[in-house]
């Protein structure tokens, strides 16, 4: 069935709300407004204000309340409009949700799902364009997901809600309008990376909003005789190192593409693992294409210049493969 990423997210939440009375959705403008990205349109009318809970502009407060509600027996989906605003809730996510199980000696799990939009590309400038997935992926005690396909947008929420620990889901804002086929069998795991395109010359490793760019680059490279394998990380914590290593054993070369800033990026972590685990498989230095180290600018040409783009990815692959 053809549908948009937005519709896939909506259907996933709808299914969860129907299936489990403990599930409720809470966040800014999830109710009357229908969700900042229209993922919960019509939910308020269908499920009522108790379960589709419009929250005040209190990210710290309602994320913390989501943690408490999870501890109290519910299964909250807390929508923080964007990762940019999640910075106001970092204390509760890092100091409470992620740490509680450990600092209580294993007594309490926090079955909380936090959803947030992420990424740049819509000329929203420095305060509305962050890609901080790697910050969250740094923290032990939480799982971090980056659905980049229609199937993952539809299928990842179920296992995330079933997970006894906090799960943070990043939905790249550029993906909501993406259309694609949802097969009948769309169930998926939240543990493994996926090979999105097979190839033998180089591994392109990416996640989230960069996946369509990387697939486009792979297509272009194929026309020039370079067979790129594309790995979608899907799960940013814990990383599926084995799928990465298996790809490297086939291709012996890698380029990591990450919308985060280069310094301290998730790309840096992936590269470190490749070096740790596949050093003797490598035929060339591992390369990466990240965002330039600048707050994301407003002007369209400047924003484009700051972000990973298909030509940059292609150029990097050519350098690595020497072709």
């Amino acid at each position: 069935m053809k549908m948009s990423y937005r519709e896939a997210v909506r259907q996933a939440m709808h299914e969860a709300l129907v299936a489990d009375p403990r599930v409720f959705l809470m966040g800014e403008d999830v109710g009357k407004y229908g969700g900042a990205y229209a993922c919960s349109k019509g939910f308020l009318e269908e499920f009522g204000p108790e379960r589709i809970r419009d929250a005040p502009l209190s990210e710290l407060g309602f994320v913390g309340a989501g943690i408490g509600a999870a501890l109290g027996g519910l299964r909250p989906i807390v929508e923080v409009m964007t990762v940019n605003f999640s910075l106001l809730a970092l204390d509760q996510i890092v100091n409470t949700a992620a740490a509680l199980r450990h600092m209580s000696g294993g007594q309490f799990s926090v079955p909380l799902v936090l959803r947030m939009a992420t990424g740049a590309g819509r000329q929203l400038a420095a305060q509305h364009s962050h890609s901080l997935e790697n910050w969250y992926a740094h923290i032990p005690g939480i799982k971090v997901l980056a659905p980049a396909t229609i199937i993952d947008a539809r299928g990842m929420l179920g296992p995330a809600l079933a997970d006894p620990d906090p799960v943070v889901i990043f939905e790249h804002a550029q993906l909501y309008n993406m259309e694609g086929d949802l097969p009948d069998d769309w169930r998926c795991d939240i543990a493994t990376a996926a090979v999105r395109r097979e190839g033998t010359d180089v591994s392109l490793i990416t996640y989230g909003g960069s996946l369509p760019k990387v697939l486009a680059a792979a297509e272009q490279l194929a026309a020039e005789g370079i067979a790129a394998e594309v790995i979608d990380l899907r799960v940013l914590r814990p990383l599926d190192s084995e799928t990465i290593a298996a790809s490297l054993r086939r291709t012996h070369k890698a380029v990591v593409v990450d919308e985060g800033w280069k310094s301290g990026s998730l790309a840096a972590e992936v590269m470190a693992r490749i070096v740790e685990q596949c050093f003797f498989e490598l035929d060339a230095p591992v390369a990466r294409v990240c965002s330039e180290e600048v707050p994301i600018p407003y002007a369209k040409h400047m924003e484009e210049a700051a972000l990973p783009q298909v030509p940059k990815i292609v150029a990097s692959v050519k350098q690595v493969t020497g072709k």
């Binding site: 407060g61 309340a65 408490g68 109290g72 027996g73 204390d91 509760q92 409470t96």
Partner: peptide
């Protein structure tokens, strides 16, 4: 809870869970 104020949002959440259930 050792972050000053950190327990307060949690308490609101417990209240919400008890109220909804």
């Amino acid at each position: 809870n050792a972050i000053v104020g950190g327990g307060l949002p949690l308490a609101a959440g417990f209240g919400l869970a008890d109220k909804l259930q």
